[in-house]
Protein backbone atom coordinates (compact mmCIF):
# COMPACT_ATOMS: atom_id res chain seq x y z
CA UNK A 1 0.00 0.00 0.00
CA UNK A 2 1.30 3.46 -0.90
CA UNK A 3 1.43 5.67 2.20
CA UNK A 4 0.48 9.30 1.60
CA UNK A 5 2.65 10.78 4.35
CA UNK A 6 6.40 10.79 3.77
CA UNK A 7 9.56 11.59 5.70
CA UNK A 8 13.06 11.95 4.21
CA UNK A 9 16.20 10.27 5.57
CA UNK A 10 19.40 11.91 4.30
CA UNK A 11 22.07 9.50 5.56
CA UNK A 12 21.89 5.88 6.71
CA UNK A 13 23.56 6.87 10.02
CA UNK A 14 20.81 9.39 10.87
CA UNK A 15 18.58 8.88 13.92
CA UNK A 16 16.06 11.49 12.69
CA UNK A 17 14.04 11.95 9.48
CA UNK A 18 12.47 15.13 8.03
CA UNK A 19 8.69 15.33 7.52
CA UNK A 20 7.85 16.31 3.91
CA UNK A 21 4.35 17.34 5.04
CA UNK A 22 2.57 17.58 8.40
CA UNK A 23 2.52 14.05 9.87
CA UNK A 24 -0.23 12.46 11.93
CA UNK A 25 0.17 9.41 14.19
CA UNK A 26 0.46 6.19 12.17
CA UNK A 27 2.74 4.75 9.53
CA UNK A 28 4.76 7.00 7.18
CA UNK A 29 6.82 6.16 4.09
CA UNK A 30 10.57 6.88 4.30
CA UNK A 31 12.43 8.16 1.21
CA UNK A 32 16.05 9.16 0.65
CA UNK A 33 18.50 6.73 2.31
CA UNK A 34 16.38 4.91 4.91
CA UNK A 35 17.44 1.67 6.59
CA UNK A 36 13.77 0.70 6.81
CA UNK A 37 10.93 1.43 4.32
CA UNK A 38 8.59 3.01 6.87
CA UNK A 39 8.34 4.39 10.39
CA UNK A 40 5.57 4.75 12.96
CA UNK A 41 4.78 8.29 14.07
CA UNK A 42 3.38 8.61 17.61
CA UNK A 43 2.50 12.33 17.73
CA UNK A 44 1.73 15.16 15.29
CA UNK A 45 4.83 16.50 13.57
CA UNK A 46 4.80 19.82 11.65
CA UNK A 47 5.86 20.06 8.00
CA UNK A 48 9.66 20.21 7.71
CA UNK A 49 10.26 19.11 11.29
CA UNK A 50 12.10 16.01 12.49
CA UNK A 51 10.89 12.69 13.86
CA UNK A 52 12.98 10.22 15.87
CA UNK A 53 13.73 7.04 13.90
CA UNK A 54 14.58 5.13 17.09
CA UNK A 55 14.62 5.68 20.86
CA UNK A 56 17.20 8.38 21.67
CA UNK A 57 18.40 8.69 25.29
CA UNK A 58 18.98 12.02 27.04
CA UNK A 59 22.54 13.17 26.34
CA UNK A 60 22.80 11.21 23.06
CA UNK A 61 23.80 12.91 19.81
CA UNK A 62 21.11 13.87 17.30
CA UNK A 63 22.41 12.78 13.89
CA UNK A 64 21.26 14.17 10.52
CA UNK A 65 23.31 14.30 7.28
CA UNK A 66 25.48 11.71 9.07
CA UNK A 67 26.82 14.43 11.40
CA UNK A 68 26.00 15.61 14.92
CA UNK A 69 23.49 18.48 14.77
CA UNK A 70 22.82 18.69 18.52
CA UNK A 71 22.21 16.72 21.71
CA UNK A 72 19.08 15.22 23.28
CA UNK A 73 18.08 17.06 26.47
CA UNK A 74 15.56 14.33 27.44
CA UNK A 75 14.67 10.79 26.43
CA UNK A 76 13.07 10.85 22.97
CA UNK A 77 10.88 7.83 22.06
CA UNK A 78 10.94 6.54 18.47
CA UNK A 79 8.31 8.24 16.29
CA UNK A 80 8.13 11.45 18.30
CA UNK A 81 8.82 15.07 17.37
CA UNK A 82 12.45 16.21 17.74
CA UNK A 83 12.91 19.97 18.16
CA UNK A 84 13.89 22.70 20.64
CA UNK A 85 11.91 21.14 23.52
CA UNK A 86 14.02 17.96 23.56
CA UNK A 87 17.35 18.85 21.92
CA UNK A 88 19.90 21.67 22.00
CA UNK A 89 22.80 23.05 20.01
CA UNK A 90 26.33 22.28 21.20
CA UNK A 91 27.42 25.88 20.53
CA UNK A 92 24.44 28.23 20.37
CA UNK A 93 23.29 28.96 23.92
CA UNK A 94 20.26 30.92 22.68
CA UNK A 95 18.61 28.00 20.91
CA UNK A 96 17.32 26.51 24.17
CA UNK A 97 15.55 29.81 24.96
CA UNK A 98 13.34 29.89 21.88
CA UNK A 99 9.64 29.22 21.66
CA UNK A 100 9.17 25.65 20.48
CA UNK A 101 6.31 26.53 18.08
CA UNK A 102 7.40 29.85 16.63
CA UNK A 103 11.18 29.97 17.22
CA UNK A 104 10.72 33.43 18.75
CA UNK A 105 13.30 34.23 21.45
CA UNK A 106 12.05 34.07 25.06
CA UNK A 107 15.24 35.54 26.56
CA UNK A 108 14.64 39.09 25.28
CA UNK A 109 12.64 41.28 27.68
CA UNK A 110 10.09 43.72 26.21
CA UNK A 111 9.50 46.23 29.05
Amino acid sequence: MELAETAFVIDRRDNVATALSALTPGKVRLTGEPTQPEATVIQEIPDGHKLALRDIAAGEDIIKYGVVIGRATQNIPAGSWVHLHCMCSLVDERSSHLDVETGVPQDTVYE
Partner: peptide, 10 residues
Protein backbone atom coordinates in the same frame (compact mmCIF):
# COMPACT_ATOMS: atom_id res chain seq x y z
CA UNK B 1 13.34 27.37 13.76
CA UNK B 2 9.65 27.56 12.92
CA UNK B 3 10.43 25.75 9.66
CA UNK B 4 11.88 22.80 11.57
CA UNK B 5 15.59 23.57 11.88
CA UNK B 6 16.49 22.99 15.54
CA UNK B 7 20.13 24.14 15.71
CA UNK B 8 22.73 26.17 13.83
CA UNK B 9 24.62 22.88 13.32
CA UNK B 10 21.61 21.45 11.47
Amino acid sequence: FMGGLSTIEE
